[in-house]
């Protein structure tokens, strides 16, 4: 699998482990967390492979936020999202 690193190790202001959390609750939790954060801050989330990684990035983009880093680690993905 690809290394998939955008910019080396962006610092996260907060994080959410969403492994085992189903669609669309994983997205809703992400959204709620982002709402408590300031514009420009970065949230790190951990998502399962399969449906979560298929769906959640699309929804994050549709809400206007920016995915700034994606790393694949075994069976899950670590995403960093900049609040917009």
């Amino acid at each position: 699998m690809g290394k998939g690193i955008t910019m080396a190790d962006i610092k996260a202001d907060d994080s959410l482990d969403l492994r085992g959390v189903l669609c669309p609750i994983n997205f809703v939790k992400t959204k709620l967390k982002l709402e408590t954060m300031d514009v420009g801050q970065v949230l790190e989330i951990v998502l399962d492979d399969g449906e979560p990684i298929q769906n959640v990035p699309k929804s994050i983009k549709e809400e206007g936020h920016k995915i700034v880093e994606v790393k694949k680690e075994g069976d899950f993905f670590r995403l960093k999202i900049e609040k917009r």
């Binding site: 492979d49 298929q54 990035p57 994606v70």
Partner: peptide, 12 residues
Amino acid sequence: CTGCTICSKACK
């Protein structure tokens, strides 16, 4: 493209 692999996951 940063090679993040998300598109290959998104494509069903």
